[in-house]
Design a protein around this nucleic acid. Sequence first.
DNA 1: GTAACTGCAAAACTTTTGCAACCAG
DNA 2: CTGGTTGCAAAAGTTTTGCAGTTAC
Lengths: 144, 144
Amino acid sequence: MNARSKKRGDKREAFVALLHTAGLRPTQQRLALAKWLFSGCPKHTTVAEARAAARKSHTHVSLATIYNMLNDFSRVGLLRPIAIGGEHLFFDTNTDNHQHLFDEEKRCLTDIPAALARLAREPRIPAGKRLTRVDIVLHVGVDK
Amino acid sequence: MNARSKKRGDKREAFVALLHTAGLRPTQQRLALAKWLFSGCPKHTTVAEARAAARKSHTHVSLATIYNMLNDFSRVGLLRPIAIGGEHLFFDTNTDNHQHLFDEEKRCLTDIPAALARLAREPRIPAGKRLTRVDIVLHVGVDK
DNA sequence: GTAACTGCAAAACTTTTGCAACCAG
DNA sequence: CTGGTTGCAAAAGTTTTGCAGTTAC
């Protein structure tokens, strides 16, 4: 299991560090998921998609573990769960402050920088409460 | 269509008319649901809540019919489905343009008039698409 | 070693469907 | 009548759980 391959050793180390910092033990399955999630462009993934990705990789991952991992990653702040309409949950690899554009035709999400989708005014919050997040989703359909 | 002003039947007639206008046959179950949904203050309900309400009324309604009705009502525009985070679907009796405040502690929704939660600027939409809806959810938690 | 994690399958839920019986028009 | 609706139960789908075996440290 611990063949010291020099090829992608440093990259692997980065993911090990990422998981370690998040307080998650860097297991094979978690490493494979983290690698897929956090390499390349940011993703808005689903359970099904993560499972498909796991299958394409060599690492065997059971469905229960997909759920465990996505939930664990979300809990420690590596992912951000987003529900759109009645659709299933997406998991966003971008946990920064930003908003979303949802294409109703393709049923896919795109990021919108927070600066481009701001509220016109500071919202009034009930006494004893504090604003924990502002979720903005722009739904777009085919132009007719 | 023929909303006759009679003291008693007035209210029932209104719901019959409501359903009829929406293109839904005003059955007992649908009338009972419509009455509960659209009497009194606007609601953000769930399948479970609608079922509980049905049980408290005299009208027998099966679970499948709850689903059918909520989906049918949504399809014809009497309700508006809203998904918050990973939570289950809410059905909003207010289909006007407005936004929401979600209390993460009580897990309940409150309406925010559209005028009080507007975007600071007109969003840029990809070519060939048009903006179909803007969903804004302010999440609030306990102040600490 | 041992505590955390995974795989597997079963359980717990949620939502949809098929069809006989029912009811509004 | 007659076709849309409902109730029931079963199916389909999703997410969680329990536990033996495995793995990271």
